[in-house]
Nucleic acid binder design. Structure first.
Length: 106
DNA sequence: CATATGACGTGAC
DNA sequence: AGTCACGCCATAT
């Protein structure tokens, strides 16, 4: 069912290991859709009731680009540093290919 | 059922 | 690397 998708997305999002990151595309694909379903991810998680439990900092753009927000940039960088994730000044994750999580590592 | 929206992806410049 | 236009998908109204 379609509802399965959103449920799966939610589960996967919360299942991202600390110190690792994933992209909207990977998440969407792992949930049963394609890379192009990334839009729905933000739609689903963005409208989820308990956003407080959603690890947004572990969900990045394709290529390891981190979502930048002038207001909460400092706190986000702090979380990344806390998990050992290095982020560039430009907002790109250092060694992205090494810490990206594809949900297929078992 | 049609339209708008969202923490996106991809390709072109 | 940065920006733009267009495409894609699930929800909300």
């Amino acid at each position: 069912m379609k509802n399965e998708f959103s449920q799966r997305v939610y589960e996967l999002a919360l299942n991202i290991p600390p110190g690792r990151v994933t992209t909207y595309g990977i998440l969407a694909k792992a949930a049963g859709g394609g890379s192009m379903a990334a839009r729905s991810i933000s739609s689903i998680l963005g409208k989820a009731p308990n956003q407080r439990a959603i690890p947004w900092h572990r969900i990045v753009y394709a290529g390891g680009k981190v979502w930048l927000d002038d207001e909460h940039e400092a706190s986000r960088r702090r979380q990344y540093k806390k998990e050992g994730i290095k982020v560039n000044e430009k907002g790109f994750i250092k060694d992205f290919e090494e810490i990206v999580y594809y949900f297929d590592e078992e």
